[in-house]
């Protein structure tokens, strides 16, 4: 057990014991190698379920709004629970966003911030293995020892299988927390910010179109991207509205494009580039590129990054006289 994990468990046990929180949302080991599962701890006796490692990929902010919803059908008084959560930089920014959008109450949240060196992308490990599955894996310092289902062993540098969003991450510590555990992360981002977008922007419109036709023709409309995204909390998604009906139910390119472009626009000025959509996609579609393009535009137009603090107004939900207005046209 690492030091962070040990301290985390101790702190959570204390918080549950003294009644500061009713439930703690963290990560626990899943049955497959290099996979974790979100975990809801309600008693100090259960804190040993909690883990902290290089595969705590899920953005736990996604799980918070549901905890503050009044149970359907419940009659009488109901007090929302006091919720603890462990947050990487990206989780914490999503939490800031959700608080500002009034989906979760700050005063009933206890955030334990943990510095993050970046998480392993299981899809990248899969690609390193080729067509065989992952039978076993052991993270050891800066590398991971993997065994394929064909019995072959391989040592992979974690740097080579880091999630793409982690490679570019500029906020490796929680931007909002009640308590931090562990030391500040040491390594700085190794890839320049928006490198993927810059490369994409250099392509011709035809190439860009072909890229997205290729990517989105893989989509199976399972909505894993949407469900894993902390920003996608709408009770009714535009993709499923029937009056008006914005798009059809098929995997025709027109339907799939409307869904993904619509979702990307709904993320404008809100996406913290946590990479949850990419990690969740069973088809390995790089949806991040769409959101990062919009993030880049927001940053260039308004000199602002998304959800860095509770106090500062978000670029697309505030107005300043000096804001860029070049997009406006004369009537």
């Amino acid at each position: 057990m690492n030091q962070v994990e040990e301290t985390l468990r101790q702190e959570v046990a204390k918080l549950l014991e003294d009644g500061t929180i009713d439930v703690f949302v963290g990560h626990e080991a899943a049955s497959l190698p290099l996979k974790t599962s979100p975990c809801f701890v309600r008693s100090p006796k259960e804190v040993d379920r909690l883990v902290w490692n290089r595969i705590c990929t899920s953005n736990l902010a996604t799980y918070l709004p549901q905890l503050f919803k009044r149970p359907v059908g419940l009659k009488g008084e109901w007090t929302p629970p006091k919720v603890g959560v462990v947050a990487k930089g990206c989780d914490s920014r999503s939490i800031v966003g959700l608080i500002k959008e009034k989906q979760i109450p700050r005063d009933r949240l206890f955030i334990i911030g943990v510095g993050c060196e970046g998480m392993i992308d299981r899809h990248s490990v899969g690609r390193a293995l080729g067509v065989v599955g992952l039978a076993d894996a052991k993270v050891d310092g800066n590398s991971v020892q993997v065994i394929g289902t064909d019995g072959r062993e391989k040592r992979i540098d974690i740097a080579d299988v880091l999630a793409a969003s982690c490679r570019e991450c500029q906020h490796r510590e929680a931007v909002l927390s009640n308590l931090t555990v562990g030391e500040a992360p040491s390594s700085a981002p190794e890839v320049s910010h928006y490198a993927n977008v810059a490369e994409f922007e250099s392509k011709s419109p035809q190439e860009r179109w072909e890229h997205w036709v290729g990517e989105l023709s893989r989509c199976i409309r399972c909505y894993a991207c949407r469900q894993a995204c902390p920003n996608c909390y709408c009770e009714e998604c535009f993709a499923e509205e029937t009056a008006p009906k914005w798009l059809g139910v098929t995997t025709d390119l027109s339907d799939v494009f409307v869904f993904h472009l619509g979702r990307a626009f709904h993320q404008a000025g809100r996406c913290v580039d946590c990479g949850a959509c990419v990690a969740a996609c069973p088809q390995g579609i790089d949806l991040r590129l769409l959101n990062q393009k919009i993030n880049k535009d927001v940053e260039e137009l308004f000199e602002a990054q998304v959800s860095l603090s509770l106090e500062e107004a978000e670029a697309l939900s505030s107005f300043r006289m000096e804001d860029d207005q070049s997009f406006m046209t004369e009537p």
């Binding site: 799980y63 399972c222 909505y223 894993a224 469900q227 969740a280 069973p282």
Partner: peptide, 12 residues
């Protein structure tokens, strides 16, 4: 409470 409510399991 863990289930995200996506359709991945059913679709694969």
């Amino acid at each position: 409470q863990k289930c995200l409510g996506c359709g991945t399991c059913a679709y694969v």
